[in-house]
Design a protein around this nucleic acid. Structure first.
Lengths: 133, 133, 133, 133
DNA sequence: GTGGTCTAGACCACA
DNA sequence: GTGGTCTAGACCACG
């Protein structure tokens, strides 16, 4: 579980931590039931205040990615978003609109963008999950 | 040039404005040489503080999307990112990693994600530009 | 907007604040678009640290009850949960099981319990909202 | 006497145990004079630390649900709350206010809520007990 | 003025 | 040992 913080990033530290954990889950490096490093341990590793780690874990818990249990630690749930379908679709659509616009302004063609997405998708471990349509 | 602020969005207003202009450029609604509304005019249109509009224009200028000329106004440059190729590729890669991770946690399959990207791409007007890979 | 903290309560302060705001929304005392007191103001009113109020507001934002906008303040959204139906039903069922069990152990009959629920329901302002089943 | 711990639940283990015993009493699965499993036995059954079970039993004793007798074990008292009537009514009212508020924010109608309560009540075995209102 | 992030450090609760 | 809450106070970002 290697977390790296970029102090130059405009993104707050707690979000960087949370995102990297989400990335590890998406890649399959962390999965259902796995234990995260303790708050104090991770705080020491990345040299931030424990409160900042707690905040990251809070965010992840509210998104349903992890579970926090007093006295025992934090664990990956293996679940994805519990939002309703309208909201999930809305968020996906927003995300893609943003992505495409930014990629366009970086000067890439639609073919470049599609290829880059495929590269990204190859790194993700999709589970065979049943989800009601 | 229709800008709409979503008061429900967590994004700051200046970013929403900048992003919508970038979106208009990507769609081809605005192109090389087109003049943007004046700061005051746009501020009045969307009912925000002129300082907020100025900030949006600053962002766009820094990204090379527009050019601000003293006294005559702001114009679309029609150029994409001025970064070097390595940096552009790095940013595209980062962007896609982020996109894929978030989409995964929203509970979408790789097929859903690809389709959603295609929908996004369909809205963009790509120019036939030669650019080194 | 009167918030009262019970320092004796086992519930953390930030939850007490969040819950009272949810109560005000349910009663109709606060509705769509209404502005909440500023973080500093409320912190002063209830004599707690501003960070504690921020935390309450964070919770409410994540539940979709309010919106926080830098520079302008926090506002009621007027929306209810964005969770999917399975999760909503699961939570309602858990809530009711807990409620009934506790009420039973307080020594009340099913008739008492039903009446008490009705009293509670009378205080709530239900909107005519369309929600897909 | 089947106790099941939900590792997904945010509630502490000792509360889950205590609550499930209260639930069994409410359903009539356990009644006046029934003996609870010994601390060690139950701890082994649900794979938790004996201290955790002890804590659950302490909670139940404090609420009057069980009686702990040195050397002989723990027994269901069959009694409900020992609080005076004003306090009991106050607690019921608080409970219902909380329940209704949460159910409202989950997006349920008053009819949904009433139905869900009825479902919950159907699982409870009410005794014909005389108690002053 | 608004909200947001982070630190340091005290103290509490659960297993 | 684990996580959770709260305070005090510095400093940043948005409008």
């Amino acid at each position: 579980m290697l977390i790296r913080i970029d102090p130059q990033s405009p993104d707050p530290i707690f979000e960087q931590i949370a995102f990297q954990i989400k990335g590890a889950v998406a890649r399959g490096d962390l999965s259902d039931g796995d234990k995260l490093p303790s708050v104090r341990e991770l705080a020491k590793d990345v040299s931030v205040n424990p409160n900042t780690v707690i905040r990251s874990y809070e965010v992840l818990e509210r998104e349903g990615v992890i579970l926090r249990r007093q006295g025992s630690g934090c664990f990956i749930t293996g679940k994805t978003s519990m939002l309703n379908d309208d909201e999930r679709k809305r968020q996906l659509s927003l995300l893609m609109r943003r992505t495409v616009t930014e990629a366009y302004h970086l000067g890439f063609s639609s073919e470049d963008i599609r290829k880059s997405l495929d590269v990204g998708l190859r790194g993700v471990h999709f589970r065979k999950e049943k989800r009601k349509k």
